[in-house]
Nucleic acid binder design. Structure first.
Lengths: 225, 225
DNA sequence: CTCATAAAGTCATCTGATGACTTTATGAGT
DNA sequence: ACTCATAAAGTCATCAGATGACTTTATGAG
Protein backbone atom coordinates (compact mmCIF):
# COMPACT_ATOMS: atom_id res chain seq x y z
CA UNK A 1 0.00 0.00 0.00
CA UNK A 2 2.40 2.58 1.19
CA UNK A 3 5.97 2.35 0.12
CA UNK A 4 8.31 2.81 3.00
CA UNK A 5 11.49 3.39 1.10
CA UNK A 6 10.17 4.89 -2.10
CA UNK A 7 12.80 7.56 -2.36
CA UNK A 8 14.95 8.80 -5.13
CA UNK A 9 18.71 8.45 -5.35
CA UNK A 10 19.45 12.03 -4.37
CA UNK A 11 17.45 11.68 -1.15
CA UNK A 12 19.26 8.46 -0.38
CA UNK A 13 22.54 10.22 -1.00
CA UNK A 14 21.49 13.05 1.31
CA UNK A 15 20.65 10.65 4.11
CA UNK A 16 23.79 8.61 3.55
CA UNK A 17 26.04 11.64 3.75
CA UNK A 18 24.10 13.19 6.59
CA UNK A 19 24.40 9.90 8.45
CA UNK A 20 28.15 9.92 8.00
CA UNK A 21 28.30 13.51 9.20
CA UNK A 22 26.21 12.86 12.31
CA UNK A 23 28.17 9.65 12.83
CA UNK A 24 31.30 11.78 13.05
CA UNK A 25 32.92 10.09 10.12
CA UNK A 26 34.50 13.45 9.44
CA UNK A 27 35.27 16.06 12.06
CA UNK A 28 34.11 19.64 11.85
CA UNK A 29 36.26 21.46 9.34
CA UNK A 30 37.43 18.26 7.76
CA UNK A 31 37.27 17.82 4.03
CA UNK A 32 35.00 15.32 2.40
CA UNK A 33 36.14 13.18 -0.51
CA UNK A 34 35.75 15.00 -3.78
CA UNK A 35 32.62 14.73 -5.87
CA UNK A 36 33.99 11.98 -8.07
CA UNK A 37 34.88 9.87 -5.02
CA UNK A 38 31.53 10.42 -3.36
CA UNK A 39 29.91 9.55 -6.64
CA UNK A 40 31.78 6.25 -6.70
CA UNK A 41 31.16 5.54 -3.00
CA UNK A 42 27.44 6.07 -3.24
CA UNK A 43 27.14 4.60 -6.71
CA UNK A 44 25.36 7.62 -8.09
CA UNK A 45 26.35 10.14 -10.68
CA UNK A 46 28.24 13.28 -9.86
CA UNK A 47 25.18 15.36 -10.61
CA UNK A 48 23.20 13.49 -7.99
CA UNK A 49 26.01 13.96 -5.49
CA UNK A 50 25.94 17.67 -6.18
CA UNK A 51 22.20 17.86 -5.56
CA UNK A 52 22.67 16.06 -2.26
CA UNK A 53 25.59 18.19 -1.19
CA UNK A 54 23.77 21.38 -2.04
CA UNK A 55 20.84 20.41 0.14
CA UNK A 56 23.18 19.63 3.03
CA UNK A 57 24.87 22.97 2.47
CA UNK A 58 21.49 24.69 2.63
CA UNK A 59 20.83 22.90 5.90
CA UNK A 60 24.09 23.99 7.42
CA UNK A 61 25.86 20.65 7.56
CA UNK A 62 28.36 21.31 4.80
CA UNK A 63 30.18 24.12 3.13
CA UNK A 64 31.70 24.09 -0.33
CA UNK A 65 34.66 26.11 -1.46
CA UNK A 66 35.18 26.23 -5.17
CA UNK A 67 38.55 24.96 -6.16
CA UNK A 68 39.20 23.58 -2.71
CA UNK A 69 36.65 21.07 -1.60
CA UNK A 70 33.61 20.35 0.53
CA UNK A 71 33.96 20.70 4.28
CA UNK A 72 31.94 19.75 7.34
CA UNK A 73 30.45 22.71 9.10
CA UNK A 74 28.45 20.96 11.81
CA UNK A 75 28.29 17.37 13.01
CA UNK A 76 25.21 17.88 15.12
CA UNK A 77 21.63 18.50 14.18
CA UNK A 78 20.87 20.36 17.38
CA UNK A 79 20.22 23.56 15.52
CA UNK A 80 18.40 21.84 12.76
CA UNK A 81 15.04 23.41 12.11
CA UNK A 82 12.13 21.08 11.67
CA UNK A 83 11.55 21.87 8.05
CA UNK A 84 11.62 18.55 6.35
CA UNK A 85 8.52 17.21 7.98
CA UNK A 86 6.62 19.77 6.02
CA UNK A 87 7.69 18.05 2.89
CA UNK A 88 6.09 14.83 4.03
CA UNK A 89 2.92 13.81 2.29
CA UNK A 90 -0.36 15.36 3.33
CA UNK A 91 -1.46 11.99 4.62
CA UNK A 92 1.63 11.77 6.81
CA UNK A 93 1.07 15.26 8.13
CA UNK A 94 -2.50 14.44 8.93
CA UNK A 95 -1.56 11.33 10.82
CA UNK A 96 0.94 13.31 12.84
CA UNK A 97 -1.71 15.88 13.54
CA UNK A 98 -4.07 13.13 14.68
CA UNK A 99 -1.45 11.89 17.12
CA UNK A 100 -1.30 15.33 18.67
CA UNK A 101 -5.07 15.82 18.61
CA UNK A 102 -5.64 12.59 20.44
CA UNK A 103 -3.01 13.07 23.09
CA UNK A 104 -3.93 16.70 23.66
CA UNK A 105 -7.59 15.78 24.09
CA UNK A 106 -6.59 13.23 26.70
CA UNK A 107 -4.44 15.71 28.57
CA UNK A 108 -7.05 18.41 28.37
CA UNK A 109 -9.66 16.04 29.77
CA UNK A 110 -7.39 15.57 32.76
CA UNK A 111 -6.35 19.19 33.18
CA UNK A 112 -9.58 20.92 32.20
CA UNK A 113 -11.07 23.84 34.04
CA UNK A 114 -14.64 25.14 33.68
CA UNK A 115 -13.19 28.13 31.89
CA UNK A 116 -11.44 26.10 29.21
CA UNK A 117 -14.55 24.02 28.64
CA UNK A 118 -16.62 27.16 28.19
CA UNK A 119 -14.08 28.52 25.74
CA UNK A 120 -14.17 25.34 23.70
CA UNK A 121 -17.97 25.41 23.54
CA UNK A 122 -17.87 28.97 22.34
CA UNK A 123 -15.37 28.18 19.59
CA UNK A 124 -17.39 25.18 18.54
CA UNK A 125 -20.51 27.31 18.25
CA UNK A 126 -18.66 29.85 16.15
CA UNK A 127 -17.39 27.12 13.94
CA UNK A 128 -20.86 25.84 13.21
CA UNK A 129 -21.46 23.52 10.31
CA UNK A 130 -20.21 24.00 6.81
CA UNK A 131 -22.88 25.96 5.00
CA UNK A 132 -21.39 25.76 1.55
CA UNK A 133 -19.84 29.20 1.85
CA UNK A 134 -16.20 30.15 2.07
CA UNK A 135 -14.51 26.83 2.49
CA UNK A 136 -11.14 28.17 3.52
CA UNK A 137 -12.81 30.23 6.22
CA UNK A 138 -14.60 27.20 7.56
CA UNK A 139 -11.40 25.21 7.65
CA UNK A 140 -9.89 28.12 9.52
CA UNK A 141 -12.66 28.10 12.14
CA UNK A 142 -12.43 24.34 12.48
CA UNK A 143 -8.70 24.60 12.97
CA UNK A 144 -9.20 27.26 15.61
CA UNK A 145 -11.27 24.85 17.66
CA UNK A 146 -8.73 22.09 17.45
CA UNK A 147 -5.91 24.47 18.23
CA UNK A 148 -7.80 25.52 21.33
CA UNK A 149 -7.98 21.92 22.49
CA UNK A 150 -4.23 21.61 22.06
CA UNK A 151 -3.68 24.91 23.82
CA UNK A 152 -5.90 23.83 26.68
CA UNK A 153 -3.64 20.85 27.22
CA UNK A 154 -1.03 23.34 28.31
CA UNK A 155 1.65 21.46 26.42
CA UNK A 156 3.82 24.03 24.70
CA UNK A 157 5.69 21.55 22.57
CA UNK A 158 2.48 20.21 21.08
CA UNK A 159 1.14 23.69 20.48
CA UNK A 160 4.18 24.62 18.49
CA UNK A 161 4.26 21.47 16.43
CA UNK A 162 0.57 21.79 15.73
CA UNK A 163 0.99 25.35 14.57
CA UNK A 164 3.83 24.23 12.44
CA UNK A 165 1.64 21.80 10.54
CA UNK A 166 -1.71 23.45 10.59
CA UNK A 167 -0.85 26.25 8.19
CA UNK A 168 0.40 23.95 5.53
CA UNK A 169 -2.39 21.45 6.16
CA UNK A 170 -5.06 24.12 5.85
CA UNK A 171 -3.48 25.45 2.67
CA UNK A 172 -3.28 22.08 1.09
CA UNK A 173 -6.74 21.00 2.10
CA UNK A 174 -8.31 24.13 0.74
CA UNK A 175 -6.39 23.73 -2.49
CA UNK A 176 -6.96 20.02 -2.80
CA UNK A 177 -10.33 19.01 -1.51
CA UNK A 178 -12.47 21.14 -3.75
CA UNK A 179 -16.08 20.84 -2.74
CA UNK A 180 -15.88 17.27 -1.53
CA UNK A 181 -15.44 18.26 2.07
CA UNK A 182 -16.30 15.58 4.64
CA UNK A 183 -19.27 15.92 6.90
CA UNK A 184 -18.63 18.60 9.48
CA UNK A 185 -19.63 16.00 12.04
CA UNK A 186 -20.65 18.47 14.68
CA UNK A 187 -21.68 15.62 16.95
CA UNK A 188 -18.17 14.17 17.13
CA UNK A 189 -16.82 17.59 17.98
CA UNK A 190 -19.39 18.07 20.72
CA UNK A 191 -18.48 14.62 22.00
CA UNK A 192 -14.89 15.75 22.39
CA UNK A 193 -15.90 18.69 24.53
CA UNK A 194 -18.29 16.55 26.53
CA UNK A 195 -15.59 14.01 27.26
CA UNK A 196 -13.24 16.78 28.29
CA UNK A 197 -15.85 18.25 30.58
CA UNK A 198 -16.48 14.84 32.09
CA UNK A 199 -12.77 14.35 32.50
CA UNK A 200 -12.72 11.09 30.59
CA UNK A 201 -9.49 10.80 28.59
CA UNK A 202 -10.38 7.51 26.92
CA UNK A 203 -13.66 8.88 25.63
CA UNK A 204 -11.93 12.07 24.48
CA UNK A 205 -9.44 9.91 22.61
CA UNK A 206 -12.22 7.94 20.97
CA UNK A 207 -14.18 11.05 20.04
CA UNK A 208 -11.20 12.56 18.27
CA UNK A 209 -10.67 9.39 16.31
CA UNK A 210 -14.35 9.27 15.37
CA UNK A 211 -13.99 12.71 13.87
CA UNK A 212 -10.75 12.11 12.07
CA UNK A 213 -11.52 8.74 10.50
CA UNK A 214 -13.82 10.08 7.76
CA UNK A 215 -11.42 12.93 7.04
CA UNK A 216 -8.58 10.50 6.51
CA UNK A 217 -10.79 8.40 4.29
CA UNK A 218 -11.71 11.47 2.25
CA UNK A 219 -8.05 12.35 1.98
CA UNK A 220 -7.24 8.94 0.58
CA UNK A 221 -9.99 9.33 -1.95
CA UNK A 222 -8.70 12.71 -3.07
CA UNK A 223 -5.03 11.84 -3.13
CA UNK A 224 -5.58 8.77 -5.25
CA UNK A 225 -7.47 10.73 -7.88
CA UNK B 1 32.57 40.59 5.78
CA UNK B 2 31.15 38.19 3.29
CA UNK B 3 30.81 39.52 -0.17
CA UNK B 4 27.16 40.07 -0.80
CA UNK B 5 27.22 39.62 -4.52
CA UNK B 6 29.64 36.74 -4.67
CA UNK B 7 27.16 33.97 -5.14
CA UNK B 8 26.98 31.09 -7.48
CA UNK B 9 24.34 30.57 -10.11
CA UNK B 10 22.48 27.90 -8.22
CA UNK B 11 22.01 30.18 -5.21
CA UNK B 12 20.79 32.92 -7.48
CA UNK B 13 18.36 30.48 -9.03
CA UNK B 14 17.14 29.44 -5.58
CA UNK B 15 16.45 33.02 -4.58
CA UNK B 16 14.83 33.86 -7.90
CA UNK B 17 12.43 30.93 -7.67
CA UNK B 18 11.79 31.42 -3.96
CA UNK B 19 11.00 35.04 -4.65
CA UNK B 20 8.46 34.06 -7.27
CA UNK B 21 6.90 31.57 -4.87
CA UNK B 22 6.61 34.02 -1.99
CA UNK B 23 5.39 36.62 -4.47
CA UNK B 24 2.52 34.29 -5.28
CA UNK B 25 3.49 34.02 -8.90
CA UNK B 26 2.10 30.52 -8.65
CA UNK B 27 -0.65 29.45 -6.28
CA UNK B 28 -0.37 26.53 -3.89
CA UNK B 29 -0.74 23.34 -5.86
CA UNK B 30 0.02 25.05 -9.12
CA UNK B 31 2.59 23.61 -11.47
CA UNK B 32 5.83 25.38 -12.27
CA UNK B 33 7.23 25.51 -15.78
CA UNK B 34 9.24 22.42 -16.59
CA UNK B 35 12.95 22.22 -15.99
CA UNK B 36 13.87 23.18 -19.53
CA UNK B 37 11.71 26.29 -19.35
CA UNK B 38 13.07 27.34 -15.98
CA UNK B 39 16.53 26.75 -17.35
CA UNK B 40 15.79 29.13 -20.22
CA UNK B 41 14.07 31.71 -18.00
CA UNK B 42 16.92 31.88 -15.53
CA UNK B 43 19.61 31.46 -18.15
CA UNK B 44 21.23 28.59 -16.34
CA UNK B 45 21.61 24.95 -17.22
CA UNK B 46 19.06 22.33 -16.35
CA UNK B 47 21.42 20.80 -13.82
CA UNK B 48 21.62 24.09 -11.97
CA UNK B 49 17.84 24.37 -12.01
CA UNK B 50 17.59 20.91 -10.52
CA UNK B 51 19.98 21.81 -7.69
CA UNK B 52 17.90 24.89 -6.93
CA UNK B 53 14.61 23.04 -7.06
CA UNK B 54 15.89 20.29 -4.83
CA UNK B 55 16.91 22.77 -2.17
CA UNK B 56 13.49 24.40 -2.31
CA UNK B 57 11.90 20.97 -2.03
CA UNK B 58 14.02 20.27 1.03
CA UNK B 59 12.81 23.54 2.50
CA UNK B 60 9.17 22.73 1.92
CA UNK B 61 8.38 25.24 -0.77
CA UNK B 62 8.14 22.84 -3.68
CA UNK B 63 7.27 19.29 -4.42
CA UNK B 64 8.34 17.27 -7.44
CA UNK B 65 6.42 14.44 -8.99
CA UNK B 66 8.30 12.38 -11.47
CA UNK B 67 6.61 12.29 -14.80
CA UNK B 68 4.22 15.03 -13.82
CA UNK B 69 5.98 18.21 -12.82
CA UNK B 70 7.08 20.47 -10.02
CA UNK B 71 4.39 21.99 -7.80
CA UNK B 72 4.16 24.71 -5.21
CA UNK B 73 3.76 23.32 -1.74
CA UNK B 74 3.66 26.50 0.27
CA UNK B 75 3.69 30.17 -0.62
CA UNK B 76 4.56 31.23 2.88
CA UNK B 77 7.90 31.17 4.58
CA UNK B 78 8.19 27.51 5.36
CA UNK B 79 11.60 27.82 6.89
CA UNK B 80 10.39 28.89 10.29
CA UNK B 81 12.32 26.83 12.79
CA UNK B 82 10.66 25.15 15.71
CA UNK B 83 12.73 26.72 18.41
CA UNK B 84 10.22 27.03 21.18
CA UNK B 85 9.31 23.38 21.07
CA UNK B 86 12.88 22.48 21.84
CA UNK B 87 12.89 24.76 24.84
CA UNK B 88 9.67 23.32 26.13
CA UNK B 89 9.85 21.49 29.41
CA UNK B 90 11.05 17.93 29.45
CA UNK B 91 7.63 16.86 30.57
CA UNK B 92 6.02 18.55 27.57
CA UNK B 93 8.54 17.05 25.22
CA UNK B 94 7.89 13.66 26.68
CA UNK B 95 4.17 13.97 26.27
CA UNK B 96 4.63 14.98 22.65
CA UNK B 97 6.88 12.02 22.20
CA UNK B 98 4.28 9.76 23.76
CA UNK B 99 1.68 11.02 21.30
CA UNK B 100 3.93 9.98 18.44
CA UNK B 101 4.91 6.68 20.05
CA UNK B 102 1.29 5.73 20.48
CA UNK B 103 0.13 6.68 17.03
CA UNK B 104 3.16 5.19 15.33
CA UNK B 105 2.64 1.91 17.17
CA UNK B 106 -0.95 1.88 15.97
CA UNK B 107 0.07 2.53 12.38
CA UNK B 108 2.88 0.02 12.49
CA UNK B 109 0.50 -2.62 13.80
CA UNK B 110 -1.60 -2.01 10.71
CA UNK B 111 1.23 -1.75 8.22
CA UNK B 112 3.64 -4.27 9.68
CA UNK B 113 5.55 -6.82 7.67
CA UNK B 114 7.32 -9.91 9.01
CA UNK B 115 10.58 -8.17 8.26
CA UNK B 116 9.81 -5.12 10.38
CA UNK B 117 8.66 -7.30 13.24
CA UNK B 118 11.89 -9.29 13.08
CA UNK B 119 13.88 -6.04 13.06
CA UNK B 120 12.06 -4.79 16.12
CA UNK B 121 12.69 -8.04 17.99
CA UNK B 122 16.36 -7.81 17.16
CA UNK B 123 16.61 -4.25 18.42
CA UNK B 124 14.73 -5.15 21.56
CA UNK B 125 17.13 -8.02 22.22
CA UNK B 126 20.10 -5.71 21.71
CA UNK B 127 18.57 -3.22 24.08
CA UNK B 128 18.28 -5.77 26.86
CA UNK B 129 17.66 -4.64 30.40
CA UNK B 130 19.57 -1.95 32.20
CA UNK B 131 22.48 -3.70 33.88
CA UNK B 132 23.75 -0.73 35.80
CA UNK B 133 26.40 0.03 33.25
CA UNK B 134 26.61 2.98 30.90
CA UNK B 135 23.28 4.66 31.39
CA UNK B 136 23.52 6.95 28.37
CA UNK B 137 24.28 3.96 26.19
CA UNK B 138 21.23 2.15 27.47
CA UNK B 139 19.02 5.14 26.80
CA UNK B 140 20.51 5.24 23.34
CA UNK B 141 19.62 1.62 22.71
CA UNK B 142 16.15 2.12 24.10
CA UNK B 143 15.65 5.11 21.86
CA UNK B 144 16.84 3.09 18.87
CA UNK B 145 14.04 0.63 19.47
CA UNK B 146 11.38 3.30 19.71
CA UNK B 147 12.75 5.09 16.69
CA UNK B 148 12.48 1.85 14.77
CA UNK B 149 8.80 1.60 15.64
CA UNK B 150 8.25 5.10 14.34
CA UNK B 151 10.27 4.38 11.22
CA UNK B 152 8.27 1.21 10.61
CA UNK B 153 5.12 3.27 10.54
CA UNK B 154 6.43 4.77 7.33
CA UNK B 155 5.27 8.21 8.38
CA UNK B 156 8.01 10.63 7.48
CA UNK B 157 6.51 13.54 9.35
CA UNK B 158 6.50 11.59 12.59
CA UNK B 159 10.03 10.41 12.00
CA UNK B 160 11.17 13.98 11.63
CA UNK B 161 9.43 15.24 14.72
CA UNK B 162 10.62 12.31 16.75
CA UNK B 163 14.21 12.86 15.69
CA UNK B 164 13.76 16.49 16.51
CA UNK B 165 12.99 15.70 20.11
CA UNK B 166 14.82 12.49 20.78
CA UNK B 167 18.29 13.94 20.92
CA UNK B 168 17.44 16.53 23.52
CA UNK B 169 15.23 14.10 25.42
CA UNK B 170 17.96 11.51 25.63
CA UNK B 171 20.47 14.07 26.76
CA UNK B 172 18.20 15.51 29.37
CA UNK B 173 17.16 12.16 30.74
CA UNK B 174 20.71 10.99 31.10
CA UNK B 175 21.65 14.22 32.80
CA UNK B 176 18.57 14.45 34.99
CA UNK B 177 17.56 11.05 36.15
CA UNK B 178 20.81 10.05 37.73
CA UNK B 179 20.58 6.47 38.88
CA UNK B 180 16.89 6.53 39.54
CA UNK B 181 16.03 5.09 36.18
CA UNK B 182 12.62 3.44 35.96
CA UNK B 183 12.40 -0.28 35.55
CA UNK B 184 13.40 -1.22 32.06
CA UNK B 185 10.04 -2.92 31.78
CA UNK B 186 11.09 -5.36 29.14
CA UNK B 187 7.68 -6.95 29.27
CA UNK B 188 5.87 -3.83 28.13
CA UNK B 189 8.28 -3.46 25.25
CA UNK B 190 7.77 -7.06 24.22
CA UNK B 191 4.03 -6.46 24.46
CA UNK B 192 4.37 -3.64 21.93
CA UNK B 193 6.07 -5.89 19.43
CA UNK B 194 3.59 -8.67 20.09
CA UNK B 195 0.68 -6.35 19.44
CA UNK B 196 2.33 -5.12 16.26
CA UNK B 197 2.89 -8.66 15.11
CA UNK B 198 -0.71 -9.53 15.87
CA UNK B 199 -1.82 -6.43 14.05
CA UNK B 200 -3.79 -5.09 16.99
CA UNK B 201 -3.55 -1.27 17.08
CA UNK B 202 -5.54 -0.88 20.30
CA UNK B 203 -3.29 -3.27 22.18
CA UNK B 204 -0.20 -1.61 20.70
CA UNK B 205 -1.56 1.71 21.93
CA UNK B 206 -2.15 0.30 25.40
CA UNK B 207 1.26 -1.35 25.55
CA UNK B 208 3.02 1.88 24.75
CA UNK B 209 1.08 3.67 27.46
CA UNK B 210 1.87 0.93 29.96
CA UNK B 211 5.54 1.49 29.30
CA UNK B 212 5.44 5.25 29.39
CA UNK B 213 3.32 5.70 32.49
CA UNK B 214 6.06 4.83 35.00
CA UNK B 215 8.57 6.91 33.10
CA UNK B 216 6.32 9.94 33.28
CA UNK B 217 5.77 9.30 36.95
CA UNK B 218 9.51 9.14 37.52
CA UNK B 219 9.89 12.34 35.59
CA UNK B 220 7.39 14.09 37.82
CA UNK B 221 9.29 12.91 40.87
CA UNK B 222 12.61 14.13 39.54
CA UNK B 223 11.66 17.45 38.10
CA UNK B 224 9.12 19.56 39.86
CA UNK B 225 9.96 22.53 37.75
C1' DC C 1 -19.55 6.29 -24.25
C1' DT C 2 -15.92 3.11 -22.30
C1' DC C 3 -11.57 1.68 -21.94
C1' DA C 4 -7.22 -0.27 -23.36
C1' DT C 5 -3.26 1.59 -25.65
C1' DA C 6 -0.26 4.81 -27.93
C1' DA C 7 1.86 9.16 -27.68
C1' DA C 8 3.57 13.10 -25.47
C1' DG C 9 5.29 15.47 -21.49
C1' DT C 10 8.24 15.66 -17.46
C1' DC C 11 11.32 14.44 -13.87
C1' DA C 12 15.44 11.19 -12.67
C1' DT C 13 19.83 9.92 -13.73
C1' DC C 14 24.06 9.21 -16.19
C1' DT C 15 28.12 10.55 -19.00
C1' DG C 16 31.42 13.66 -20.74
C1' DA C 17 33.40 18.08 -21.23
C1' DT C 18 34.92 22.89 -20.18
C1' DG C 19 35.74 26.80 -17.15
C1' DA C 20 36.96 28.96 -12.64
C1' DC C 21 39.23 28.89 -8.57
C1' DT C 22 42.43 27.05 -4.99
C1' DT C 23 46.27 24.47 -3.48
C1' DT C 24 50.60 22.48 -4.23
C1' DA C 25 54.87 21.69 -6.67
C1' DT C 26 58.58 23.68 -9.23
C1' DG C 27 62.69 26.10 -10.19
C1' DA C 28 65.07 30.26 -11.42
C1' DG C 29 67.17 34.06 -9.27
C1' DT C 30 69.22 35.95 -5.26
C1' DA D 1 69.32 28.02 1.56
C1' DC D 2 65.52 31.19 0.77
C1' DT D 3 62.00 33.78 -1.87
C1' DC D 4 58.60 34.10 -4.93
C1' DA D 5 56.54 34.09 -9.45
C1' DT D 6 54.65 30.56 -12.18
C1' DA D 7 53.26 26.06 -13.71
C1' DA D 8 50.77 22.04 -12.56
C1' DA D 9 47.38 19.49 -10.24
C1' DG D 10 43.15 19.16 -7.73
C1' DT D 11 38.36 20.44 -7.06
C1' DC D 12 34.05 22.68 -7.48
C1' DA D 13 30.78 25.23 -10.98
C1' DT D 14 28.38 24.85 -14.97
C1' DC D 15 26.94 23.31 -19.30
C1' DA D 16 25.18 20.02 -22.99
C1' DG D 17 23.29 15.80 -24.59
C1' DA D 18 21.22 11.38 -23.99
C1' DT D 19 18.47 7.66 -21.93
C1' DG D 20 15.20 5.77 -18.64
C1' DA D 21 11.06 5.94 -15.67
C1' DC D 22 6.84 7.63 -14.65
C1' DT D 23 2.58 10.40 -15.44
C1' DT D 24 -0.73 12.57 -18.19
C1' DT D 25 -3.19 13.14 -22.31
C1' DA D 26 -4.78 11.85 -26.82
C1' DT D 27 -6.49 8.23 -29.66
C1' DG D 28 -9.34 4.83 -31.64
C1' DA D 29 -11.65 0.43 -31.62
C1' DG D 30 -15.59 -1.72 -29.75
Amino acid sequence: MRALSKTNLADEAIEAIRGDILGKRWAVGEKLPNEASLSAMLSVSRGTVREAVRVLVSQGYLETRQGSGTYVRSTTDAGRPLTMARRASLRDQFEARLALDVEAARLTAIRKTPKTVAGLRRLLAERGNYDGGDQAAFIERDLAFHKAVIAASGNRAMIEIYDFFSASIADTIAATLGKDIPEPDMQAHADIVDAIETGDPDEADAAVRRFMAPVLAALDRMILS
